[in-house]
């Protein structure tokens, strides 16, 4: 069952220097309990996509086109009050930097209880109990004491666990995790991925995991969408995308990750720099950095999907598919 269907979403920022097309026609859909990896470099629009779903894009940005059907209702046209009711209850979000997401001057219990009371009429005692259980479920020892702590008394990994606990407090249908492991140590990263994955499995929660780290999503996601300059350039089943990447950009990304299979070989790198979103090249946005760049690429390629559901936006697909 599809719970979220995003169709040609466009979120633009109207800055003084010009219009930044941070998200420029992104489409994907997500079934119940599915995990999607949204992968891309900084500035590729993956975080803005996440914030668009929650209706939390700060001015001067706004959603200018497209639809986002959540359980069949369009989040783009939904009144603010109804979106607010969905936030934190049906759709929750985990942020990148746990040092910044919790309010430094409020106790953990305050920040957890308010998340429950914003959506349900329960007693404080009941809410406190649920907050305590929530902390226990993300593996925080002695949760009763931790509830009375302030954020600065917890470590970064601990704070991210609290943020995850808050996200799952109201049993949402969808959790959007915006690079939740980027700011953490590698050992802690694995733990955080594990905690989030388990909670989603237990409760059948769908998860959008936004990251620039293909290695993280490879083991986590059911399918992957790779974004470049505000557009999805490749999408498909995780195995398909990781093992048989077809877009030159994805190939480049994967080539730059150290892997046990290619021991001793040089890592490749993608030439050039992340594009300036104010002056993208005509046609394919990746053209300037692509080794397959030719005349055709001056046209913008459409996204094409093969029979296996593997979609790419390129005139020069790599890795010809093995005949089925």
């Amino acid at each position: 069952m599809t719970i979220l269907a995003v169709d040609s979403l466009k979120t633009h920022f109207f800055t003084r220097a010009g219009v930044v097309r941070a998200v420029d026609g992104v489409s994907f859909s997500l079934g119940q309990g599915e995990v999607m990896g949204l992968v891309g470099e900084s500035g590729s629009g993956k975080s803005v996509t996440g914030f668009s779903i929650l209706g939390l894009v700060d001015p001067p940005g706004r959603v200018v086109e497209g639809s986002m059907l959540f359980h069949g209702e369009d989040l783009v046209t939904m009144p603010t009050r109804e979106i607010r009711a969905l936030r934190g209850s049906r759709i929750a979000m985990i942020f990148q930097d746990p040092m910044m997401t919790l309010n430094p001057v409020l106790r953990i219990d305050t920040q957890m209880i308010e998340a429950i009371l914003a959506h349900e009429k329960v007693s404080r005692k009941e809410a406190l109990k649920r907050a305590c259980d929530g902390l226990a479920q993300v593996g925080i020892p002695s949760p009763e004491q931790r509830l009375r702590n302030y954020p600065h008394q917890l470590s970064g990994g601990m704070r991210q666990r609290v943020a995850i606990a808050i996200a799952f407090l109201n049993n949402p249908d969808l959790v959007i995790a915006d690079e939740p492991t980027t700011a953490l140590d590698v050992t802690i990263q694995a733990q955080i991925v594990h905690v989030a994955q388990n909670l989603c499995r237990e409760r059948g929660t769908a998860l959008i995991w936004i990251t620039h780290d293909l290695a993280v999503v490879a083991g986590l996601a059911d399918h992957i969408a790779v974004m470049y300059a505000g557009r999805v350039v490749e999408a498909g089943q995780t195995d398909d995308v990781i093992d048989r990447p077809r877009h030159p950009y994805t190939v480049g990304l994967l080539g730059s990750v150290p892997s046990a299979n290619r021991r001793g070989q040089r890592l490749t790198q993608i030439p050039g720099m992340t594009p300036n979103m104010l002056s993208l090249p005509e046609g394919c946005a990746f053209r300037d950095r692509c080794t397959h760049n030719d005349e055709r690429c001056k046209e913008s390629p459409e996204i094409t999907t093969d029979s296996g559901g593997h979609a790419i936006r390129c005139f020069h697909p790599q890795y010809e598919k093995a005949p089925a």
């Binding site: 929650l54 939390l56 700060d58 607010r84 009711a85 969905l86 936030r87 934190g88 209850s89 929750a92 979000m93 942020f95 990148q96 930097d97 910044m100 997401t101 919790l102 309010n103 430094p104 308010e114 998340a115 914003a118 959506h119 943020a163 808050i166």
Partner: peptide
């Protein structure tokens, strides 16, 4: 700040 955005993402009312 992120904590304001996070508070909004929790679905809190603007007044809170």
């Amino acid at each position: 700040q992120d904590y304001i955005k996070f508070a909004r993402a929790k679905g809190l009312s603007e007044s809170r």
